[in-house]
Computed example of a mutant assay.
Amino acid sequence: MENRINFTKAVIDALPIPESGKRNTYHDIKTSGLQLRVTSTGVKTFSVYRRIKHGDPERITLGRYPDMTIEQARREAVRIASDIAEGKNPAEVKRGHKAELTFSDLFGDYMERHSKPKKKTWAEDQAQFRLYLEKPLGNKKLSTIDRKSIAHIHSSITKAGYAPTANRVKALLSSVFGWAITVGLCESNPVIGIKSNKENQRDRFLQSDELPRFFESLAGEPNSTIRDYILISLLTGARRSNVLSMRWQDISLERAEWRIPMTKNGTPQTVALSPEAIEILQNRKPSDDAVFVFPGSGRAGHLMEPKKGWKRILERAGIGNLRIHDLRRTLGSWQAKTGASLAIIGKSLNHKSQNTTAIYARLDLDPVRDSINKATGAMLAAAGVKQSANVAKIKGTK
């Protein structure tokens, strides 16, 4: 048989492009029936070519190279050949292949049937999919996603400098495939066996000498939604997902309180709002019936991913190795600097600890509010923004 070659990446990448209107077909020497067709436009497509018992040969298209890897094509070719050997109709095999779920299909089912009903952090799952998974995996059939595919994604995120994020994405993928197995949508979890990155506990927070540059950079941020989101994150110490989905109906400007109906800990939380936080919210208060404090254009209706704005702010300030979550730690650190007890800090940040749960239950909001106000004042003083009125100057609007 002509054009019999060993399908390797180097060999396939080097294959010549046929003349206009023509197509070359190559046969894998390792997997019977597996072909690669190359068109004059450079498109390379895997297919299975098998003769049916008492019938004519049939060709079943598998997928395009390099979206489908050689290993995945070989595995599919063996599976289809086995189906045909058992007497299955190749047309039905092909229809079954086309009907197979893509990862986007699976993730959509996972969100609607598991994540949204059962996880308080479902919005983070959605954001991770859009940022890290939709492009490399979205259109792939589940049978083509193997451990190598997942390991490549984990490695890429890690090499970009986001080792903890890579672990979170890996955990999400494992959860998706684990759920899919329980509901009969797939048979194996390709994440199993991939090692997580070693994570060191972070102790990063904004230092006194960084605060003036940080606030100056905030004043220069052109996107008011991003600017105010960062300020409220810093002044409340609330978790990222809670601030992103902050709703007007949960805020009482009169009582200076923000009631979070449900947090990551599975409990509600009442956040004491400092005068500076109140001023920012008053300036943002819309005249219409807006739902979210930080609206967004996506399906969720609120801001989902402030990463680009955060990067701009840090670059202008000349500050490195600071994450949005570190703003939460910053408030707690400044509370400690201004004399707050660990119980007060834990109550204000809604930390869940078996050792201090009983203490938290006895605390009312007044000492927490005093601690937050004192810490906020100390931060603003260190930043050179000593008066509450100056927060409006940072905001740059009303």
Rank of each mutant, 00 (worst) to 15 (best):
R239E: 10
D228E: 13
W248V: 07
I260R: 10
V243H: 01
L244R: 14
Q249N: 13
L253S: 02
I230C: 11
E254H: 08
G266K: 11
L231I: 13
R247S: 14
M262Q: 14
R259F: 13
R255F: 02
R259H: 14
W248D: 02
A256P: 01
I260V: 15
G266L: 08
D228C: 14
R255A: 14
G266Y: 07
T267E: 15
R259A: 14
E254N: 08
D250M: 06
W248F: 12
A256N: 06
P261D: 10
R259G: 04
M246P: 13
V243K: 01
Y229W: 12
L235D: 08
W248G: 01
S252R: 02
W248A: 00
Y229P: 01
Y229H: 12
T236G: 09
T263L: 13
N265G: 15
G266C: 04
N242P: 05
W258E: 01
Q249E: 15
R259M: 13
S241L: 12
V243F: 08
D250A: 12
W258H: 04
L253P: 09
R239K: 09
I230G: 03
L234N: 11
T263G: 07
L253I: 12
E257Y: 02
Q249Y: 01
M262L: 15
T263R: 10
L253W: 00
S241A: 15
A238R: 03
L244T: 10
D250L: 04
R239L: 11
W258N: 01
T236S: 06
M246Q: 05
M246Y: 04
G237H: 02
I251T: 05
K264F: 11
V243D: 02
G237A: 08
R240M: 06
T267L: 14
A238E: 03
I230T: 09
S245D: 04
I232C: 06
S233Y: 08
L234T: 11
D250W: 00
T267C: 04
L235E: 10
N242I: 00
E257T: 14
R247D: 07
D228Q: 06
S241E: 15
G266T: 06
R259C: 10
I251C: 07
I260L: 11
S233E: 04
S245A: 15
Q249T: 14
I251W: 06
G266E: 05
L231Y: 03
G237D: 05
R255Q: 13
L231W: 05
R239T: 10
L235M: 13
T267G: 02
L235P: 07
S245W: 03
L234S: 06
E254M: 03
R240P: 00
I232E: 03
D250V: 06
A238D: 02
E257W: 00
T236K: 05
W258C: 07
E254R: 10
M262W: 06
E257H: 09
W248S: 01
L235I: 03
W248N: 00
S233R: 05
T267Y: 08
S241P: 00
T236V: 06
M262Y: 09
T263E: 11
I230D: 01
T236A: 05
W258M: 07
L235R: 06
A238H: 05
M246I: 07
Y229K: 03
L244P: 08
P261R: 01
S233A: 12
I260W: 07
R255T: 08
Y229D: 04
M246H: 05
K264N: 04
S245Y: 02
P261K: 04
S233M: 08
G266F: 05
L253H: 03
